[in-house]
């Protein structure tokens, strides 16, 4: 497909400050966008809830692309995404294989990879009459990918399907493939973070990662939720003792994992950046959903300390 990327470039220009692009980046982006063969995006769902895809549909910005429609029609070539693509059955898996064969692609993975039952706890499609497990699909498409983007905590670290006794033997993408991945954890992943990462990949920018594969810019560089929290006692907040009386109060005693969670969440969900909503804004403790320790065995409602490894 012929991709019109004019608006995408406009988006990058206008939102350069918030997404951290330099003038040099923008010149490079213009060159990349002049080419009709920017990476195709192939999206695989494993042991997931589809919540990260739903979250991506919630993408909204003041600048172009303004929403997911513009992303899909003007920014990327999403050749395979089972939740929204028109094709069904083997025609859809054939489209996946054709797109992978045609050229460079970004492999996006949502969900963990179950290894139990020979991988048959998650069969993702049939191809040439053969049932393909998530394990096989990731092993098939990871080696040829220009980059692997793990969207959400499950593909990044295992997440909730990996919790407890890990009944289906879920592993994350790095564990399965041994390949580097760019991890965009969150339960779900914040759509603005996902689009930021896609921009970096289109640019060919290096993306500095922290020790658990997350872009430093999106996570570590923001400090902890607690450090920036308007309810932090350091800036005059008062600690709540119970949910009976917690409005506008610090939730540290109610299980908040904010001191151990590095992300920029405040008013960054379900709305334009800084104009949206977030967990603490509705008096709910941070559950630390972007961390490899999520969910962990600890209660979400008792004072939190990460388990020592």
């Amino acid at each position: 497909m012929q991709i019109s990327r004019r608006n995408f470039l406009k988006y990058c220009t206008m939102s350069a400050a918030s997404i951290g692009l330099t003038r040099l980046d923008l010149e490079a982006l213009a060159a990349v966008l002049a080419k009709p063969d920017a990476p195709t995006v192939l999206w695989l769902h494993g042991s997931s809830c589809t919540g990260c895809s739903v979250s991506l549909l919630n993408y909204v910005s003041d600048t172009a692309p303004h929403d997911i429609t513009e992303v899909l029609t003007q920014s990327i070539n999403l050749a395979f995404h089972p939740t929204i693509m028109a094709l069904s059955g083997e025609a859809s898996s054939a489209a996946l294989h054709q797109a992978a064969a045609a050229g460079p692609y970004v492999l996006v993975i949502e969900g963990g990879i179950p290894m139990a039952y020979g991988g048959h706890a998650c069969v993702v499609y049939s191809y040439n009459g053969h049932e393909v497990t998530m394990q096989e699909a990731v092993q098939r498409f990871a080696p040829g990918a220009a980059a692997i983007l793990c969207v959400g905590t499950c593909s990044s670290y295992g997440g909730i399907p990996h919790a407890g006794s890990n009944p289906t033997g879920v592993v994350n993408v790095r564990e399965l493939t041994g390949r580097p991945t760019i991890n965009i954890p969150g339960c779900p992943a914040n759509p603005s973070w996902v689009i930021w990462a896609v921009v970096q990949l289109i640019l060919g920018n290096p993306v500095p990662l922290d020790s658990v594969g997350r872009p430093v810019f999106l996570y570590h560089a923001n400090g902890t939720i607690h450090q920036n929290c308007p309810r932090n006692p350091a800036v005059g907040g008062e600690e709540a003792a119970g949910f009976e009386d917690c409005h506008h109060k610090c939730l540290i005693n109610l299980g908040c994992r904010g001191p151990f969670t590095e992300a920029k969440c405040e008013n960054c969900w379900n709305g334009k950046e800084g104009q949206g909503h977030w967990c603490i804004g509705v008096n709910a403790p941070c559950h630390g959903c972007v961390e490899p320790t999520f969910p962990g065995p600890q209660s979400f409602y008792e004072p939190y300390l990460p388990e020592s490894p």
Partner: peptide, 13 residues
Amino acid sequence: SIDPVTRIEGHLK
């Protein structure tokens, strides 16, 4: 066989 059934949530054949 219709596999995958797309435009649903999750994995169905």
